[in-house]
């Protein structure tokens, strides 16, 4: 018997134009066309979307949670990247 397991695909749905695609869940499908249709049949039954991406789950590279501190914590003390860091004289507008 040949392998009958359909690979897993991650589904991303654009809720409406102007928004980015957002991860909605996954489906099993034997080919890309089937994955798009399964994503449509499973994740947009209630008008949830206007566009779909499907990506083979095996193609996704994720960051390692063990590296999370090294990767993300250094951003914490860069407060000068945020506009609220700066003092503006009172009464100055449009800045």
């Amino acid at each position: 018997m040949t392998n009958a397991n359909w690979p897993l695909w991650e589904v991303f749905v654009r809720a409406k134009n102007g928004l980015s695609h957002k991860h909605a869940g996954s489906v099993h499908a034997a080919d890309a066309r089937m994955a798009i249709e399964a994503a449509r049949d499973v994740y947009t039954r209630r008008m949830e979307g206007v566009s779909l991406w499907v990506v083979p789950s095996s193609a996704i590279v994720a960051s390692d949670p063990k590296e999370a501190a090294d990767l993300f914590e250094p951003a914490a003390d860069k407060v000068y990247r945020h506009p609220t860091f700066y003092t503006i004289p009172e009464g100055v507008k449009n800045i």
Binding site: M1, N5, W6, A30, D31
Partner: peptide, 12 residues
């Protein structure tokens, strides 16, 4: 459904 699942994989 086994033959259906196999066929889809074989075709892919």
């Amino acid at each position: 459904g086994a033959w259906v699942r196999e066929a889809a994989v074989a075709h892919a």
